[in-house]
Nucleic acid binder design. Structure first.
Lengths: 256, 256
DNA sequence: CGTGAAGTTGAGTATGCTCAACGGTGGTGG
DNA sequence: CCACCACCGTTGAGCATACTCAACTTCACG
């Protein structure tokens, strides 16, 4: 980890990215009839919960690369994703970056801790979100305890997922990490009703590396390995077909 | 990671550990006046919450090495620690182990996900805990929404801590990991009112390694490095004195 | 069609792991 | 009570995995 030049270059990049891409966020009125909105909250909430949430929601649009909020900022809003992909990042002083998660339609952000956000949230692709002010959300939860219960369940689920990621980062090999990631993407795609085997990978190899705790080159190498072994196929670098998810599963679990 | 012999040996160890140490758990009536119990829940709960919790609690005692519950088991109870240290473990098929956290008096376990436990819980030292049946806890939370709110806050805090651990495992060097760990232990010791600099390390080097995603030998080497550099001192391997927490802090953050 | 970012591939290397030996320590049984 | 034994921790030597650095290719976008 002794590449001061790269690290400093990267800090510069990352810092400059903020003014370059602007922090302005478009706000529009909530779209009452929007079907995507229903899909968004479908996670664990039922129709009544969604109606309640919608009453305090406003809509947010982000372009690719735009920052929704930064680590340490006062956490005034809860968000849910209706369209697009986001990444949650933590930065070290020398520019090393760890992505703690990717978010897709239906996911919530801002549940970790209380006072301030524990990570930055950035758009990987163009995104639309719903924004709920915590101040009003608290009132809402007081009135509808079931809602708090559901959000709490989502937080607990995220905690379990974080612990899976801890196992991955602490004990899995590079191949196992990439296989786990592909399967995770497949599962999320399937849950959102996409046809079997095909997954979209909207993030760059660098994003994947910063999520899996690896260098981008290693990601690349392992994906070609998998391709040569007939595990996956692809034309674009961003559209993959998992040909043998069972075999990938075995790799991800460290069996061989 | 190609040490089939060791891995298999280790699986055998771990599997045999369960019958060897027995799964029996002593249960006693809750001790109404126990001052430790107060300390236990002091985390984020106020006196009223503690009284409510106590009404459904029973007490549990574990000897060192004993398993409280195993990964995948039905999660029927929430626990809080009143005395001792526990570790939360996830195992891979070939015996690789990741410890997702250590627990000390005042900590809760069993908040992650819903149906079943996402990890095993094992006593590092002799422990006493309080046990709350989820079935009754749900009733309690329905009656006192504030209680659910507090437990939810604890879960959110754990989520933020898990994300810190993800950064550590994904992007920090061995030295940075060990420095971070020592400071984390110091913070927890301080929060429980121990005098400055001194920390007890009840877990083995192997536990530390499985928590930090490293080999035990590396842990050992880095602790001697720190000792030679005057960062820490010690007589026992299990009682350390942090002489220069500021310097350790800089290391933990990757500054130099 | 040109340009810059992203991705791929190769060569060399460093960090941390494996394997092994040894020293200390606490618990147990003779 | 002492001796033994197993476990834990430490240290050393060699090595493997994945990183760094660099060149080249592909792709998206203007």
């Amino acid at each position: 980890m002794n590449s001061e030049h790269l690290d400093i270059k990267r800090v510069a990049e990352l810092k400059s990215a903020i003014p370059r891409q602007g922090r302005r966020i478009e706000l529009t009125a909530p779209c009452k009839a929007c079907p995507v909105q229903r899909a968004a909250a479908a996670a664990a909430l039922d129709a009544a919960d969604i109606d309640h949430l919608r009453s305090i929601a406003s809509s947010v649009t982000l372009t690719a690369g735009q920052v929704l909020f930064s680590e340490g900022e006062r956490a005034d809003y809860l968000y849910s994703v209706t369209l697009g992909t986001l990444r949650l990042c933590k930065l070290m002083a020398d520019g090393r970056r760890q992505i703690t998660g990717f978010l897709f339609p239906g996911d919530f952000l801002g549940l970790a801790d209380n006072e301030s956000y524990a990570y930055s949230a950035e758009a990987v692709t163009g995104c639309t979100l719903l924004r709920y002010p915590f101040a009003r959300l608290r009132q809402l939860m007081a009135a509808y305890p079931e809602l708090e219960h559901k959000l709490c369940a989502i937080a607990r689920h995220e905690l379990a997922e974080a612990q899976d990621q801890i196992l991955l980062l602490g004990r899995k090999t590079a191949r196992e990490r990439v296989a786990s990631f592909l399967l995770q993407m497949l599962e999320r795609a399937t849950r959102r009703g996409l046809d079997g085997g095909r997954i979209a990978v909207p993030m760059t190899r660098e994003d994947m590396g910063d999520y899996l705790g690896m260098a981008t080159e290693t990601i690349s190498r392992i994906l070609t390995e998998f391709r040569n072994e007939g595990m996956i196929s692809s034309e674009n670098a961003k559209d993959l077909m998992l040909k043998r998810p069972d075999a990938l599963q075995r790799i991800a679990e460290g069996l061989r």
